[in-house]
C-alpha cells in the first residue's frame, strides 16, 4: 500500500553521513563544478544551489580556528568547544581530546578520531605535531 513514488526517494545526505561515521569514515561533500568542500551535508552547494555533488573521504587533518573553555561547578573540570578547519576546506564544531581544555589553542594542528559517546558515534580531534 506504500506510495510507489516514495520508493524512488534517495537517502538524505545527513543519513548518508551518519551511516559512514558509524562505520568509522568521515565524509564531506564536494561540488563537482566549483570543487568547494562543505559541511554539514546538504542537497545543494551553499551559495550556488548546485546539486551535482560527490562524497569524498576526509583525511581528517585540521587546524583549530577558535576555542572557548567552559567552566563548570567544581569538582567538574572545565571543558572546551572548538571550531576546526579541515584541510579540505570545511569548518565544523568539535573538541580536541587528549589535552587539558586550557591547552587547546587557535592554530593547533589536529587529527580526527571517531569515538563512541552516549551510545552514538562522535567526531572528535586529537593534537598532532606537538606535545600535549
Amino acid at each position: 500500500m506504500s506510495n510507489p513514488a516514495m520508493a524512488t526517494l534517495p537517502e538524505g545526505p545527513e543519513a548518508t553521513w551518519r551511516k559512514a561515521l558509524a562505520e568509522g569514515r568521515l565524509l564531506l561533500q564536494r561540488a563537482k563544478g566549483s570543487g568547494t568542500v562543505f559541511f554539514p551535508p546538504r542537497w545543494a552547494e551553499p551559495g550556488t544551489g548546485e546539486t551535482d555533488l560527490e562524497w569524498i573521504e576526509a583525511a581528517g587533518l585540521g587546524t583549530v580556528y577558535s576555542v572557548t573553555v567552559i567552566n563548570q561547578k567544581p569538582p567538574q573540570l572545565p571543558y572546551h568547544v572548538a571550531l576546526i578547519d579541515l584541510d579540505e576546506g570545511a569548518r565544523l564544531m568539535s573538541r580536541v581530546d587528549g589535552v587539558p581544555a586550557e591547552q587547546v589553542h587557535i592554530g593547533m594542528r589536529v587529527c580526527a578520531r571517531i569515538i563512541t559517546e552516549q551510545d552514538a558515534p562522535l567526531l572528535v580531534f586529537e593534537p598532532i605535531g606537538e606535545k600535549g
Binding site: I70, Y79, V81, M93, E117, Q118, A120, L122
Partner: peptide, 13 residues
Amino acid sequence: PYRPLFPVSPYAL
C-alpha cells in the same frame, strides 16, 4: 554533542 553553552559559547568563539 559538544555541549556549547547556549547562547554564550558561540559569542565566546
